[in-house]
């Protein structure tokens, strides 16, 4: 099965309820937009950095979360510097960094299974609206089951197309992939029904 992004640990954040952490994330995200004040937001960012340390993560883990958007943040800072002033630039980048880093921290400290459990709890009140938690769990499991199967089918098709000299055409890959996996989906649906699911 696909490994989640969770990193083992035993900190306060690791032990906290998934739902509580998600609520904290929403609160932090809303908060930093409601207070457009760079010193306050910088303080929030520093607190998030401290939380990484408390949770047992080093600088490498921390920077890895923000690295993919480093250039984007640099551009945003430059744009603000050009349009307004450096304070505005600082506000924009500290705000994004604080939200993204806290959100990543929630993912790093919460097991996929705990996240799933709180999702199932959150879905319960939606039952009258036609949301069936069992079917959602089934669908989630099936995606995880399908990913390796589709990846295998994709590489089979790629080999077959390569033999015909079509390996550079993504269309020659994607159409047979969809048709073969749709056929598979029909068989899977039959198998589920045969196993008395309804």
């Amino acid at each position: 099965m696909i490994a989640g992004l969770y990193r083992d640990g035993n900190s306060v954040l690791h032990r906290a309820q998934a739902g509580a952490k998600i609520l904290a994330m929403v609160a932090l995200g809303t908060g930093v937009f409601l207070i457009p004040d760079w010193p306050v937001v910088s303080l929030v960012l520093v607190s998030v950095i401290v939380l990484y340390r408390i949770s047992g993560f080093g600088w490498a883990t921390m920077t890895a979360q923000i690295k993919p958007m480093f250039w984007l943040l640099a551009i945003f800072f430059a744009v603000q510097l050009w349009l307004n002033d450096w304070q505005a630039g600082l506000l924009v980048i500290t705000r994004i960094a604080a939200i993204v880093m806290f959100a990543s921290l929630v993912t790093l400290t919460t097991k996929t299974s705990d996240m799933l459990a709180s999702l199932e709890r959150a879905m319960r009140p939606l039952k009258p609206l036609g949301v069936n938690p069992e079917k959602v769990s089934l669908a989630i499991s099936m995606v995880l089951r399908f990913i390796p199967v589709i990846a295998t089918v994709a590489s089979e098709i790629r080999d077959a197309q390569r033999a015909r000299g079509l390996d550079r055409s993504i269309l020659a890959m994607i159409v047979p992939l969809i048709i073969r996996t749709l056929k598979m989906a029909d068989d899977v649906a039959d198998a589920i029904e045969a196993r008395s699911f309804d």
């Binding site: 984007l72 945003f76 993204v100 880093m101 959100a103 929630v106 993912t107 790093l108």
Partner: peptide, 11 residues
């Protein structure tokens, strides 16, 4: 990539 970090990010 995955998790909340990338979902709440710039993109």
């Amino acid at each position: 990539r995955g998790g909340f970090g990338v979902m709440v990010g710039v993109t």
